[in-house]
Design a protein around this nucleic acid. Structure first.
Length: 588
RNA sequence: GCCCCAGUAGCUCAGGGGAUAGAGCACUGGCCUCCGGAGCCGGGAGCGCAGGUUCGAUUCCUGCCUGGGGCACCA
């Protein structure tokens, strides 16, 4: 049990003894560190219900408190805050318990959930640009967060590979190379093994055909027809789709690997294509939920209490082909069959209405029982300083690969300036530059609140001082350096003893907040809770580092304790950075 | 028109119903006989407007203003 839960339980019992609800005993970190370490505000809210004055109630609670030896001081302040300072011995005991466990003091979650994180979601046929950055690294971080919290988690890329974009790419290729056998409906022979296009070709073709479909209705109609034919098994289109799919996946796997993003499942919309017709059929015939409207099949998802009319969810177009909504619903059906009880859709906020419709349809159709959590874990757009979606100076989108090169080059330049790195071998410098550049990039993005739009600022991703990823990496590297030198000097860590220095105490207090931080980050599904805390851990370590010179310490008990403390700090920092998807170099 | 998200320091952003709203950048003053200066210590300024709930509101609710996004055969 974490320190805060331990204190909350003790205070909860004291409130019960005073005739008040247990929940009033909640203990939180003090907002006024100069006054106390922790505070309990329960007396303020409970006083009215108890018909007593807050200060009076607080005093009764303090009188009812047991095990008083763990408190260095207990005060009632202001209108009825209880200020709490625990003894250094108690802190040391808590730190030892955290240090000895293998999970840094994290509790096992109850209930343990089976979670699916749906993120990334690139359309095939597009090389990734800066807009994919958020989806990828927020999703990756949330996946790791739930995993580190003890849940059973899988990440699914959920590629967009079965809808209109495929139809559009089919007609676009036909325009360029009409003689390919894929377009000959009568062709019965085998199709070529090699793809007629690269991903770069697809990336070039895609925006062109999208624009044409917007401006020319007959082109849009052709794309729709191609989509329909593909979904109904036209051989040549399926063979072509396979090529598109394979070249996309190959390159995207490489891109995601460079980014440190690892999917457990490489599924896509096409994965559920066999489920689409039966699902629509079931919803029309068995449930009577779906019906025909203007030739399309729809589910009415509006409710009486809606303030505005909610458009129906479309299951098929009037030509019978399937849409995003259909595959999403079928995918959800599959996920629930597989036992997931929480599904997080880490997708751009602009798709909010779509998910509201899909979730409602899933509830109405009994696809998702109420016990299954369905959440659109939305995120905001990356904008240019003028508030519009980010574009490069040339007006194009910034490719993710180019962005990664920019940050890596900047980190490399910084490393080349560093005196300490002069004798590092080239391959290590390259690796460090990549780790540091990516660290800056990921931390810079993840430290924004998930739902807010933010301004893309290259300087922020290429500066390595202050509140940045490299600041955290640097803290961890400093600790590694100390531990390395201690080992060389034959020093070994020993039990953590009661702190005597403010900076040492501050570091311990900070580390003990890890369980609540993880819990809160899970609760609000927000990696920036972790970036905030990780920065505070690193800052508290740096203060301790300046104040307490470990290797020169003469008291060997204290020195051994400090070695354990910084080792614990390293483990906490590493856990946090790993959850954020940021690697820690051995040196930098 | 309706719905969703957001408005906090010069800039970019945190902030969990509690006391005196925090960081980074930028500007600026200090700290290297000492474990790595990508560091540490110090210096100013701010919750869009109006109501409501509450002992207490930046936080919850309502309305307005501003910005972004969305509103069935795209994803």
């Amino acid at each position: 049990m974490s320190l805060l839960k331990d204190l909350s339980q003790r205070f909860g019992e004291a409130f019960v003894a005073a005739g008040v609800d247990r929940s009033a005993g909640l203990v939180v970190p003090s907002q006024r560190p100069e006054l106390a370490q922790y505070q309990c505000n329960g007396a303020l809210g409970a006083a009215k219900r108890a018909g007593r004055s807050p200060r009076d109630l607080a005093q009764t609670v303090l009188d009812a408190l047991t095990d008083r030896e763990i408190y260095a001081s207990l005060d009632i302040a202001g209108p009825g805050f209880i200020n709490i300072v625990v003894t250094d011995d108690y802190l040391a005991a808590r730190a030892r318990a955290m240090e000895e466990g293998d999970r840094c003091g994290l509790d096992v979650p109850d209930p343990k959930r089976k979670v699916l994180v749906d993120y990334g979601g690139p359309n095939m046929s597009k090389s990734m640009h800066v807009g994919h950055l958020r989806a990828s690294i927020i999703g990756e971080s949330l996946k790791r967060l739930f995993r580190v919290a003890g849940h059973d988690v899988a990440g699914d890329i959920h590629m967009g590979d079965w809808g209109m974009p495929v139809g559009q790419l089919i007609i676009e290729l036909e325009r360029h190379q009409p003689d390919l056998p894929y377009f000959d409906a009568d062709y019965a022979g085998p199709y070529p093994e090699d793809s007629p296009v690269t991903l770069d070709d697809l990336s070039e073709m895609y925006p062109v055909v999208v624009e044409r479909c917007q401006n020319e209705p007959e082109e849009a109609e052709r794309a729709r027809q191609a989509t329909f034919d593909l979904q109904n098994g036209r051989r040549g289109y399926l063979a072509l789709w396979r090529h598109y799919h394979d070249v996309s996946v190959a390159e995207q796997k490489a891109d995601f690997e460079d980014l440190g993003v690892e999917f457990d499942l490489w599924r896509g919309e096409s994965t559920v294509h066999d489920r689409l017709a039966p699902l629509v059929d079931r919803l029309m015939n068995d449930d009577g939920l779906a019906f025909e409207s203007d030739g399309a099949v729809v589910v009415q998802v509006g409710r009486e209490d809606d303030k505005t009319e909610m458009p129906p969810l479309l299951l098929t177009r009037s030509d019978g082909s399937y849409l995003y909504s259909t595959t999403d619903l079928a995918t959800l059906d599959q996920r629930i069959e597989e036992g997931y009880d929480l599904v997080l859709y880490v997708v751009d906020a602009r798709q909010g209405l779509h998910f509201e419709q899909v979730f409602r349809a899933a509830r109405l159709a009994g696809i998702a029982p109420d016990s299954v959590g369905l959440e659109h874990t939305m995120f905001g757009t990356v904008n240019s300083p003028d508030g519009t979606p980010f574009k490069t100076r040339e007006g194009g989108v910034l490719r993710l690969a180019d962005l990664m090169k920019i940050v890596t080059d900047a980190a490399r330049a910084r490393l080349d300036e560093a005196e300490i790195a002069q004798d590092y071998p080239d391959d290590e410098r390259d690796r460090i530059a990549r780790q540091v550049g990516l660290g800056a990039l990921k931390f810079g993005d993840l430290s924004n609140h998930r739902t807010s739009n933010y301004i893309f600022d290259l300087d922020r991703f290429t500066s390595f001082e202050g509140k940045t990823g490299p600041y955290l990496q640097y803290g961890a590297v400093r600790i590694k350096s100390i531990l390395r030198r201690a080992r060389e000097a034959g020093l070994t860590p020993g039990p953590i003893v009661a702190p005597t220095v403010d900076q040492e105490r501050g570091l311990i207090l900070r580390l003990l907040l890890l369980p609540e931080t993880i819990e809160r980050a899970v609760d609000v599904r927000a990696p920036n809770v972790l970036t905030e805390y990780a920065y505070e851990v690193a800052t508290d370590f740096n203060r301790f580092y300046e104040a307490c010179h470990i290797l020169r310490e003469e008291d060997s008990i204290r020195q051994a304790s400090w070695l354990s403390l910084v080792d614990l700090t390293l483990r906490v920092l590493t856990l946090l950075l790993d959850t954020l998807g940021i690697e820690v170099p051995e040196r930098m």
